[in-house]
């Protein structure tokens, strides 16, 4: 979860329309929670507030091992230590990817991790 490779999140609105997009930051919170950066009010943000179910794909930049995290939106934070930590990491990711001034953290969206599946192509 170092932000080297963009992660992917798939959500679905309550009408049943899936949405797939890349996300710049998946942040480890604890053994059962991750936080995603909320930068722009987009379809992902809307969808998880209608239907909290989502799946997030992350990849280790050293080993290229990948995981699919089945997650559920829990709550949003805007004034917390978590928010500050994510804000700092997001600035580093933005700088690394030439997106300084474009990425701005609005909130840290915290998700409960329901299951983790290893994705292998060996």
């Amino acid at each position: 979860m170092q932000g080297v490779f963009p992660s992917v999140i798939v959500t679905c609105n309550k009408a049943g329309e899936p949405n797939a997009t890349t996300i710049s930051q998946v942040f480890y919170v604890d053994e059962t929670h991750v936080a995603l950066s909320f930068q722009f009010f987009n379809k992902t943000i809307r969808n998880v507030r209608e239907n909290p179910k989502a799946v997030v794909q992350i990849m280790c930049p050293q080993t290229l091992r990948a995981w699919a995290l089945e997650v559920e939106f829990d709550h949003s934070e805007t004034d917390s230590e978590l928010f500050e930590q994510m804000d700092m990491q997001l600035e580093a990711i933005a700088s690394m990817s030439g997106m300084s001034g474009i990425f701005k953290l609005q909130a840290a969206d915290v998700y409960r991790v329901k299951s983790v599946q290893v994705i292998t192509y060996n």
């Binding site: 490779f5 963009p6 992917v8 798939v10 959500t11 679905c12 309550k14 049943g16 899936p18 949405n19 797939a20 890349t22 239907n51 179910k53 989502a54 799946v55 794909q57 990948a66 699919a68 089945e70 994705i119």
Partner: peptide, 18 residues
């Protein structure tokens, strides 16, 4: 291109495949 295909089941649980 980095590509991901998203779908969902009858319980509106999204799924992902590269």
């Amino acid at each position: 291109l980095a590509i991901a295909l998203g779908t969902r089941n009858s319980e509106l649980q999204p799924a992902f495949v590269r």
